[in-house]
Design a protein around this nucleic acid. Structure first.
Lengths: 217, 217
DNA sequence: CAGATTTACATTGTATACAATAAATCCCTT
DNA sequence: AAGGGATTTATTGTATACAATGTAAATCTG
């Protein structure tokens, strides 16, 4: 496997940041991280550069790198962008989806319902991933697919919080079924609209959560 | 200015590759590039990593980095993705555009028409940039804006070729005016559709160009 | 005492030397 | 002579030493 130290450190740091081990504005000391992982500064620097490119940290020349947790507005923008990407995937998938993938979606939804009645949130979460990534793939556009996956990944921690809103999973599943129906009917505009709202409603719930908890210190 | 050598080399290499100085599969020798630019391997490596992230070159562990010109299918996918992004921008911009920006668009189109009658292709090209980047900005979503700009930049060389198709600029400008009209009327769906087709038609023209010239050796 | 200038320090940016590894070549064996 | 394995070589990956630079503190001057 391509297991060079820079990659390892990059993913480790990425998880740390997404998990919230660092606060916004914290500086990431190259030598400290290097000694923590038992390597030299070089691979650490490469790892940091990767994270800069993915937008998780900010680099100020000759000053250092700082973690940059997205603020409320940026989170909204990220979710909105996600909604738009999903919408695109849905539109294209409605035109191109294979019978096989359609069957996968039906099966996933059926399994999701079981997980829901069993109150198995983790399992449901996993099926949710399958559902969406399948749609990304069936857009038939590899660029769109990979971009969607990337953003989906980035929003993972926030979506998780969001899914714990009472009653949301039930509604979410109903929307999934409506989306599949629009695929079966071959209605690109309908699919596009449903998927956009499916994600956009999450934004709305998230906004409520935010304003009620006032996480933005 | 933040003018560290890595950045300089990255942009220089990027331009070189986009200009077509390298062929698909060419290996980029770190030490050769380093000596060319009169620096050590370190900043060159950093520059190469950046290009890997932006998808211009491919890195095979312990083998080297190779330029990776997109093939015909990937180009199609890139253009299709661009069409979808522009479509999103258009939809949101129709809902959010400021009167000021609307005026900018009108002025740009007017200037474009002048450039067109004067046969000033470069000037027209520049106005085209302004037109589209304004729409990106007026989407009101900074993530969407920057992603659109990034892809727009990446497709620059191919779009340039495409604009030289006879009669295309005239048609393009007409489409621009229709788009502005949909903004003025505040019709998001119309704007979305117009912008998607505006880019998608480029894909079509490009496909013709490709198949006629058979550039895919 | 306040402000500016200089000096010291902390931190990133760069260079070079060394290690690891994979491809290619060459030699040995059958 | 052909095939396989060891060796060599080319190239990336990593470590460390050094240079550049920006910040902050300390000192000097008005």
């Amino acid at each position: 496997m391509g297991k060079n130290k820079a990659e390892v450190i990059a993913t480790a740091l990425e998880e740390s940041i997404l998990r919230g081990d660092y606060h916004d504005g914290d500086r990431l000391d190259e030598i400290k991280i290097a000694s923590e992982y038992g390597v030299s500064r070089t691979p650490v620097r490469e790892a940091l550069h990767k994270l800069v490119l993915s937008g998780l940290i900010e680099q100020i020349p000759r000053r250092g790198v700082f973690v940059r947790q997205p603020g409320a507005v940026e989170l909204m923008e990220l979710f909105e962008f996600m909604a738009e990407l999903e919408s695109c995937c849905g539109r294209l998938a409605a035109l191109r989806i294979s019978e096989e993938a359609l069957e996968t979606l039906r099966a996933t939804n059926k399994a999701s319902r079981l997980a829901l009645t069993a109150n198995d949130t983790d399992q449901y979460y996993e099926y949710n991933e399958t559902f969406h990534s399948t749609i990304y793939r069936e857009s038939g556009n590899r660029i769109l697919e990979s971009e969607s996956l990337r953003l989906h990944q980035r929003l993972k921690p926030y979506r998780r919080i969001q899914l714990q809103v009472r009653g949301r999973p039930v509604q979410s599943l109903a929307e999934h079924e409506a989306i599949v129906a629009s695929f079966e009917a071959g209605e690109p505009d309908k699919a596009s609209q449903l998927l956009r709202e499916h994600v956009a409603v999450q934004v709305e719930k998230f906004r409520h959560l935010l304003s009620s908890l006032e996480l933005t210190d």
